[in-house]
Design a protein around this nucleic acid. Structure first.
Length: 559
RNA sequence: UGAGGUGUGGCCAAGCGGUAAGGCAUCGGGUUUUGGUCCCGUGACCCCAGGUUCGAAUCCUGGCACCUCAGCCA
């Protein structure tokens, strides 16, 4: 499926179209998705990925995948691998354009030297605390760093020695000489390089000084010929700095990137910060980054979300600058819509209740036709075995059938989907009074589930032949948090107190139809009347495990 | 009290001076061998107050609210 663009327009498209009209950048559109490999990608990243790759595609340009790996302390190849895998899975192709900011370290270093020579950067001896204490505040200026007074030669020498490893971590930095009284705090002599005697996951021990985000990002964009550098709103106040660095290094005639900011995505009932997601993983509240309850791409994938549904979601939420919290119901709507078209229907009984058909011959089995997908006739039909003893969903039977209950109850006739009309004649209880079996009779004239005499039954329920069904485990998921905005709920100091204790429910005595035997992990189905489910990779040769992606919409009790 | 942003129905979001798109959710109704799908229908004087204009969500002025920035994180 092609990513269809439902939102008519957004301000970024306007900007790009305006640039194109003016012939800027030679009519090129080059974007990039620049994650830091310090965690797994989540649905918020998906918004950015779809935006950047989508724009490139729309305007006949290209989109790079760039690892923003300038901080070896937090980064790891495990994350790099997962990012590459996730972006690919989402359906995007960066071709040859996979880059690493760390590949630009040498060039970045040279630019730092250039700034020193221009008298625009200096080596500082301040500690982190001192830098912080002298930065000033919103309404008061900062104080100048003594390092500011150093001459070019001394700075050059000191900076070279920083690179050479002459100084311990935290003792020196390279700072830009801008303005300690700038109203924008980011312009108050920002740190360009810090010393970290740390092994980098790609450059190994080559470097012991690493560039800061501000000194690396815009230049990386420049190196790659990015035309539109799209990032989230918190970088808006960094834009003057982004431009300041480009002012110092950009050569005439080369593409000069422009930073454009949009509002990041918040999804209701979950958290999106990498720190908090990491915390959930580390405290073992979830089973890992790919726990189906996580808003990570890997979690959504394991949950059964399709790339198409996520791309559709990204299109529908739009792109703007206003803070927003998108209702997770929209995401759910997107998978339902996608899976409704594609997922084959099968029968599963999550909470089995035995049914015996008194007038059906013992030992007899017949095969009935079942439609694989009413939305798509080409998906054909399959045979479903029917016999005297069946299982139905426990909640599809009630002794007291109140007004709106259309399912099985004493004396009531209902349709067993694809099979017959059955009428309940009674129940069998165990010692404790629990119903363990429902007795019924069937009407042989209603084979296939319809009646020639035109009589209607309101209810249709699903069922499985007792001797043919196979066992399975089904994991039901619910929202991870009980609050719409766990990170922004008043009177709540710790978001973790809002974790939903019932976000996972494991049912280990479920039954599914025999055709599911050997189903491959990742395969998606609609369990008739229940929802969309997919095979989890925890499944083994003799035990299937399913994840519930999302329930079917349910209007029970609403009419 | 600084700088940069944002405010359109419950949640997103178009709109770019000519009289409020669309989606999700909700609630009605119809079809239906999934209480699914599908199909119909349902809601806004656009943060507030002034002003400009024949006409303003769109322009101007003044408020108010919320978000971001004081990591050697990104």
């Amino acid at each position: 499926m092609e990513t269809n663009e439902k939102t008519t327009t957004n301000f970024i498209k306007d900007i790009i179209e305006d640039d194109l009209e003016k012939g800027k950048n030679g009519g090129q559109v080059v974007t990039r998705f620049p994650p830091e490999p310090n965690g797994y990608l989540h649905i918020g990243h998906a918004k950015s990925i779809c935006l950047n790759f989508g724009l490139a595609k729309r305007y006949g340009g290209r989109c790079h995948l760039r690892m923003d790996d300038t901080n070896p302390e937090k980064e790891d190849v495990e994350y790099t691998d997962s990012i590459i895998n996730d972006v690919k899975w989402l359906g995007f192709d960066w071709g040859e354009h996979l880059y690493y900011a760390s590949d630009y370290f040498e060039q970045l270093y040279e630019w730092a030297v250039l700034l020193i020579k221009k008298g625009l950067a200096y080596v500082s001896d301040m500690t982190p605390d001192e830098v912080s204490a002298t930065r000033g505040g919103p309404t008061w200026a900062g104080q100048e760093d003594p390092g500011r007074k150093r001459g070019v030669e001394e700075n050059l020498d000191l900076f070279a020695r920083m690179r050479a490893g002459d100084f311990p971590d935290g003792t020196k930095t390279l700072r830009a000489k801008i303005d300690m009284a700038a109203p924008n705090i980011n312009m108050r002599d920002p740190v360009l390089y810090r010393i970290k005697h740390e092994n980098h996951h790609r450059t190994g021990g080559t470097w012991c000084i690493y560039p800061m985000y501000d000194f690396a990002h815009g230049q990386s964009d420049y190196i790659e010929g990015i035309t539109h550098s799209i990032c989230t709103l918190e970088f808006e106040v960094h834009r003057p700095l982004y431009d300041w660095f480009l002012d110092q290094i950009a050569e005439p005639g080369r593409v000069r990137p422009r930073q454009i900011e949009f509002a990041r995505l918040s999804l209701s009932y979950t958290v999106m910060s990498k720190r908090k997601l990491l915390e959930l993983v580390e405290t073992k509240f979830v089973r890992g980054w790919d726990d189906p309850r996580m808003p990570t791409i890997s979690g959504l994938r394991r949950r059964g979300y399709t790339p198409e549904s996520i791309r559709d979601f990204a299109d529908r939420i739009g792109v703007a600058k206003a803070d927003n919290v998108v209702d997770v119901a929209l995401l759910e709507h997107c998978v339902r819509e996608d899976l409704n078209r594609r997922a084959p229907r099968v029968i599963a009984v999550l909470n089995p209740l035995r049914v015996v058909i008194e007038n059906y011959p013992e030992g007899q089995t017949e095969e009935l036709d079942a439609v694989n997908n009413p939305e798509d006739e080409s998906m054909g039909k399959r045979k479903l075995p029917f016999s005297r003893e069946l299982y139905i969903e426990r909640e599809d039977f009630r002794e007291e059938a109140a007004g709106k209950f259309f399912r099985l109850a004493p004396g009531k006739e209902v349709r067993f989907k694809f099979a017959y009309y059955l009428t309940c004649t009674g129940v069998v209880r165990d010692d404790r009074g629990e119903i363990v079996e429902v007795r019924c009779t069937y009407d042989p004239a209603t084979r296939g589930g319809w009646s020639q005499d035109g009589r209607k039954v309101k209810g249709t329920i699903h069922w499985l032949s007792a001797e043919h069904a196979i066992p399975a485990e089904v994991r039901l998921y619910d929202r991870l948090f009980t609050a719409i905005e766990p990170e922004n709920t008043k009177d709540v100091e710790d978001y973790r107190t809002l974790l939903n204790p019932d976000s996972l429910k494991v049912l280990d005595r479920c039954l599914v139809e025999q055709s599911l035997k050997g189903a491959k992990p990742g395969t998606q189905y609609q369990f008739e009347r229940l929802g969309y489910f997919c095979v989890d990779h925890d499944s083994t040769a003799d035990r299937l495990v399913f994840n519930r992606t999302v329930t079917l919409k349910d209007s029970k009790g609403k009419d």
